[in-house]
Design a protein around this nucleic acid. Sequence first.
DNA 1: CTGGGGACGGGGCCC
DNA 2: AGGGCCCCGTCCCCA
Length: 249
Amino acid sequence: MPRSFLVKKYFTNKKPCYRESHLDSQAVTSFFNNMDSLPLPLSPVTPVSPSLSPSPLGPVDLSSSPSCSSGDEEDDGGRTSDPPSPDTLHPMYHCMYCSKSYNSLSALSHHQMSQHQSSQCSPLPHAPSLSQEALARPTFHCKHCSKEYTSLGALKMHIRSHTLPCVCPTCGKAFSRPWLLRGHIRTHTGERPFACQHCNRAFADRSNLRAHLQTHSEVKKYQCGSCSRTFSRMSLLHKHNASGCCLSH
DNA sequence: CTGGGGACGGGGCCC
DNA sequence: AGGGCCCCGTCCCCA
């Protein structure tokens, strides 16, 4: 499975390290104690321009596809999508040698095997040097924005960020995913399940606890490339750079 | 201006 | 396939 479903995405140097730093109970202490040895990115973090190269293959237009499979949980209010149209859910597979399209991978494979394999066909000029399988991979367009995905599941997940099916019963604010709603509900209940082991603070959001733990560390995660100052948050480093540090070096 | 907290979005991985 | 959870990241606000 590809690490990224998203065709158009921001490329980062993220190295997910899941399940290595559970922040509950003693794991927090472990995380903090080992902070110095963690492979933290102590280098200036620079924003990376998005790759906006168009899909080399004809994208699948899902403009009339349903926005979410769980339609019964969708809040209407003008956000619901058009009714499902099975035809438009079918991805199209495009030949890398000619412009013919097929609605099944097997049909495309048969076409390419029979029409192009024995000949000296070369891929279309706009086709990148990818494997044939990769080239045959369909792309799925979001009807609400310009994003493209290589799997329908990824697209459905993304579309939830447009349809916002999870609605707070208290204030009516809508969210794309249930756990986002749960986090929001904590703002109403005041629940703060993520406690700092080094002070009395507790947080409703794990990310905020993680950021807070940085404040306990002498050497923080984000370092200015010019003056070597370290910051607990990327945004602080950005502010620091914007304030002119790098201009004076 | 700086540091920090609150709230939230989104892609990726695991089950 | 879909839900749950993880991490990274951003924006806003305030002291």
